[in-house]
């Protein structure tokens, strides 16, 4: 019985560890599919939002109709 309980606990711990590792290695499509020509360090207002996952936070759209910028404003990188 002790071995069984230890096994269940170990499975849960390893599962949580896997979850943390996999979630942290997850990349957003806007990071993965951006070229050097595309400045998407801070995606800006033309997007639904940087943390968009199709299931938006309810407060995200209250202030502005098409989402708002999160984080600091991007520096204009013009050369």
């Amino acid at each position: 019985m002790k071995a069984f309980v230890a096994a269940v606990i170990a499975a849960i711990i390893l599962g949580i560890g896997a979850m943390l590792a996999l979630t942290s290695s997850q990349r957003f499509a806007y990071q993965a599919f951006a070229t050097s020509g595309a400045r998407v360090s801070e995606p800006g207002t033309n997007l639904v939002g940087p943390r968009w996952d199709g299931d938006p936070a309810p407060d995200e759209y209250d202030a502005e109709p098409h989402g708002k910028v999160r984080g600091a404003a991007s520096e204009p990188k013009r050369s």
Binding site: K2, A3, F4, A6, A7, V8, A10, A11
Partner: peptide, 14 residues
């Protein structure tokens, strides 16, 4: 032994 049972049950539960 305990380790064998632990291994078995961890695999089995999963």
């Amino acid at each position: 032994n305990a380790f064998e049972r632990f291994t078995h049950w961890m695999t089995a539960v999963c």
